[in-house]
Amino acid sequence: MKKAPVRARTTTAKTTTTSGPRAGGTAFQKGLKALQHYVEREGGMPGRGVVERLPDGTEHRTGIWIGNVRARRDRLGPDQLAALAELGVEWA
């Protein structure tokens, strides 16, 4: 049985990286809003599987988001950390 030939990669590799908070931070703001809604309703931090429905009808995977933000907390700005701490995030 013949093996299929190996194909060359056709997409370009990522060449730029960013460090620090992005200008605008719309994804962060959406996550913060979803976390705020969850904390107001439930009184605590969401579990990993929590999906929060926002007033505009969109859904946000808040549990995943808080884990990702925690893993990348060294890239958050002081304002972002303060906003998280205000909602009760212990590591912020």
Rank of each mutant, 00 (worst) to 15 (best):
Thr18Tyr: 13
Gly20Thr: 11
Gly20Lys: 12
Pro21Arg: 02
Arg22Ile: 07
Ala23His: 14
Ala23Asn: 14
Gly24Lys: 15
Thr26Cys: 05
Thr26Phe: 07
Phe28Ala: 05
Gln29Lys: 15
Lys30Val: 11
Leu32Lys: 00
Lys33Gln: 11
Ala34Trp: 00
Gln36Tyr: 10
Gln36Phe: 08
His37Gln: 13
Tyr38Gln: 03
Tyr38Ser: 01
Glu40Asn: 14
Glu42Ala: 10
Glu42Tyr: 06
Glu42His: 09
Met45Ile: 13
Met45Trp: 08
Pro46Tyr: 02
Pro46Ser: 00
Gly47Trp: 03
Arg48Asn: 09
Gly49Tyr: 04
Val50Ala: 08
Val50Phe: 04
Val51Thr: 12
Glu52Leu: 05
Arg53His: 04
Arg53Ile: 05
Arg53Thr: 10
Arg53Asn: 01
Pro55Glu: 10
Thr58Arg: 14
His60Met: 08
Arg61Leu: 10
Arg61His: 12
Thr62Leu: 07
Thr62Gln: 00
Thr62Asp: 02
Thr62His: 00
Ile64Lys: 05
Ile64Gly: 03
Ile64Asn: 01
Ile64Gln: 04
Trp65Thr: 03
Trp65Tyr: 06
Ile66Gly: 01
Gly67His: 08
Asn68Ile: 10
Ala71Ser: 08
Ala71Val: 06
Ala71Ile: 03
Arg72Gly: 05
Arg73Trp: 04
Asp74His: 01
Arg75Pro: 00
Gly77Thr: 14
Gly77Arg: 14
